[in-house]
Design a protein around this nucleic acid. Structure first.
Lengths: 120, 120
DNA sequence: CGGTATCCGTACTGATACTG
DNA sequence: CAGTATCAGTACGGATACCG
């Protein structure tokens, strides 16, 4: 029988890998940005401040491979490529969005905690 | 006036930093593990398969500084140190736990998507 | 426009050894 | 037990240049 390959706490765990794609530095931002709807590559790049072309490309590829993001390219000149969320991607993105909002609303607490921590 | 320092999409954003601590490779696992209750350093280390002492230490320090984790040390010999979640930490951890469960329950979809992606 | 290829620095990571 | 210190490898990330 298979081992618990979906248990995040296990070292060689498939879901851990996908979690990292979704919750990683750029994954979260890309997914949440896509909640606004279908978006083109460079629009996403402008939205996610600070991301490089390379990282956006890599991030989107990982998310597409995991079935969270859908990539649709029209063979026109110049190229027109649109990214959107799949059903699963939408669910994950919503969850991440909730987390982002939770954290943003409570950043004052975080700042206070940091000051206390740094004080000693 | 201040800029929108809590807007994750902004490059120099404080919440982005905290998000990365919470959703990073080890942050998520540490937080979710702590949902089971107060835990000692080495117990946590055993629970989070694959984490090194160094990374666990660094992760916990970052989370403690952000006010997500509480560290309590008894000055005994040998040392006895307990880690637990703060109120904010609990909220964040629950959110992450939901995300983990969502993803684990839908890993079959992910696996299918990967096969399709790799096929072409 | 939407990428890929290449280069290159640094920051992260894990072993290992050591300490109170 | 609960860490810190040190070190070496690597993978991440950004800048630049280039292509269809």
């Amino acid at each position: 029988m298979d081992e618990l390959v979906f248990d995040v706490f296990a070292r060689n765990c498939t879901s851990r890998e996908t979690m990292e794609h979704a919750t990683g530095r750029w994954g979260t931002l890309a997914l949440v940005a896509l909640l606004d709807g279908t978006t083109r590559f460079n629009a996403l790049r402008r939205r996610v401040d600070g991301i490089s072309e390379k990282m956006l490309s890599q991030t989107l590829q990982a998310l597409e491979r995991d079935g969270l993001v859908l990539r649709e390219a029209r063979p026109t000149i110049p190229p027109h490529v649109e990214y959107s969320l799949t059903g699963l991607g939408t669910d994950v993105a919503k969850q991440l969005h909730t987390l982002v909002e939770l954290l943003e609303s409570r950043m004052p607490e975080v700042m206070t905690a940091r000051e206390a921590y740094d004080a000693r």
